[in-house]
Design a protein around this nucleic acid. Structure first.
Lengths: 205, 205, 205, 205
DNA sequence: CATGAATGAGAATTCATTCAT
DNA sequence: CATGAATGAATTCTCATTCAT
């Protein structure tokens, strides 16, 4: 009976944090980090400016909190993945699983990505907490297949980041709308084509 | 008699523009776009703040001018490329050729890329003027090879942007220093591995 | 039956007031009035910020309450003082007695004195409640001795405040540490020298 | 002819500095340092807020600049002072000479004095640049007279600061208006009484 | 055209005070 | 009464841009 109020307070505080974070994400996504003012964030989050600073000590802190938030959500176990399954299906499943986070947090990702270039710490945090967890798993898989002779002997680090880069640039171009040719290509189709490309290569044997 | 001085004046003006742009590039590269002040740019360029505004109407204009500048430099004909040559050699040559621009303007790219997320026009300009010229050429090549049956039937748009993304993310990670495992991989090695990956795929046939 | 609890409540309330005042004194002494935040005061006093406002209507009120508190403490009868005693001993005793308050509340005096310049009411309160009680007594003594022909005919108001000023500046300089020459002079020595100076003057007769 | 504009600019800049400093002094004197806003200072100085920061890097800097300003003005040689003259006349002359600065810069002094308690650096600056220059001279005089046997053997440091303290507290009380008995005492009279007190002491020999 | 002093519209952040629980 | 989360006005300082010289 004595925990209850504490618990309740903690829940309220957690809810407020989330509420503010969502407001910030919204404004950041719309205006970018720098043009987003704390006043706008407060309005979007439905709190006063002062309240933001009861939960985050700095505007920049909001960015880092977003990384934490997404990373926390990413902790759920990666889709099991029967390593005996067809590599094409497995890779597709893995990629779809991990990029689903990207879809869920898409509006959070854009402002984060933008600030990657301006902030070393944020860059490292994003890499360590978001990209690494994804790539580590894929690397193991690639390394294992290479060991068993199914995959070529290429540095798994480079391969996996190549796959990520290929996916990310294509996805980014699709979403940015800078190239109309992407309008008719679905995300699923993009993913499948890229996975196929990485497995089979361009050249016909 | 009236042309000469005008011409001279124009040359002077052009030189000033370049001078200012170089100063801006220097400061942008060091501090990023937002933290770069016009005062710092003026100092770096060796002119007064006011002078900047005689050549550029806005701080943001400097970014666009940089894109133009790089694009102008990129216009030199792409390395000829004997289409009969081995695809591996050709792709390597093409990629090396185009990414050499990246080396020249590398320090400029970071602040430019960061601002992509904040400005739709800049995004489009960068895509149209910098990425498209590179990819169009590669696309033609991939399409031609696909038509001749040497390459698989995969959308060249996706393939080429996949290659670009794979290269860019790997290069970016190498330069950002967030993953020490890149310390021992040379740029050339990275490029060759990725080109090989795209040509042959992961799977052993 | 109704008195007792009321009395008890009043005592509780008084205790709380003191508790808060002590917390405030601590923080004021450490950070000065302006840099002290109500949050810090609350923490130092072991109460919540809100509770402060149940006992004091304003942060500035804490200052006035301190003056009252010190003044209340000062009300204890001034050391009797055998007026027949040697003036040197008597003055020394009086000064030591009154300045002992300064030692007790020394750390509170600095922030209080600082705010003298910012608030007319506080200035008046400090003068009326703290300085006047001390000086009035000394003035009577000086006036009596002047009447009896032992002391010169100088305005006791000026004399006594001169003595106070001489003591205060010397004490302040000793404590502030701005002049290392004070390091080797004890408080007692300072007091004795100044009392002697006031009694005998500089000139050798 | 080429210096002229530079000189002119420098003069303009110096004038602006003074203009801002005067505005600041005015507002500080009226509201105290903390309650004075940069907006008010700008208005009082007849410039924009931004301009203040072209001449002073910080609001606090204005305080230190005031010390410098007064100190610079104080550098004029102390009134010659015929050491053979009657000590009473000489001390009166010296004190009047130095305290005339206080009158001239009275409105500048009050806010400075207030902040003495809050800022260690300011305290030291005020002591070193304003009080020391005055007291050093008086100390030499007192020490010389003591050496010649005319003055008693009392620490000149304590004596001179005692004199300063006696004068300052009396002056301060006169100006603050907290004690109506000061209304009928002129500054000159105050000074003379205090000088006499220090020379002759209270006791009739 | 070059200059750089002046501008003033913001922006992030703080903190005394309130008030629902 | 106690609490402490919420408030939002107020503040210092920055910096892109202008414009008189």
């Amino acid at each position: 009976m004595s925990d209850a109020p504490v618990d309740f307070k903690e829940q309220m505080a957690e809810a407020r944090r989330t509420q503010i974070l969502l407001g910030a994400a919204q404004v950041f996504a719309q205006k970018g980090y720098h043009k987003a003012t704390t006043k706008q964030i407060a309005r979007a989050a439905g709190v006063s400016e002062g309240t933001i600073y009861n939960y985050f000590s700095t505007k920049r802190d909001l960015l880092f909190a977003m990384v934490d938030q997404i990373a926390f959500d990413s902790l759920r176990p990666i889709v099991a993945g029967d390593t005996a399954a067809d590599p094409r299906d497995l890779l597709n499943a893995l990629v779809r699983d991990r990029f689903s986070l990207g879809e869920k947090y898409g509006s959070l990702m854009a402002p984060l990505l933008a600030e990657i270039f301006n902030d070393v710490e944020l860059r490292q945090a994003l890499y360590d907490q978001l990209l690494r967890p994804i790539t580590d798993h894929l690397e193991s898989y690639v390394a294992a297949r290479a060991a068993s002779g199914e995959f070529r002997q290429i540095d798994p680090v480079v391969v996996v980041r190549g796959l990520m880069g290929a996916l990310m640039l294509n996805f980014a171009l699709k979403f940015s709308g800078v190239d109309s040719r992407y309008d008719d290509i679905s995300l699923d189709s993009l993913r499948e084509q890229i996975v196929a490309l990485f497995l089979d290569g361009l050249q016909v044997k």
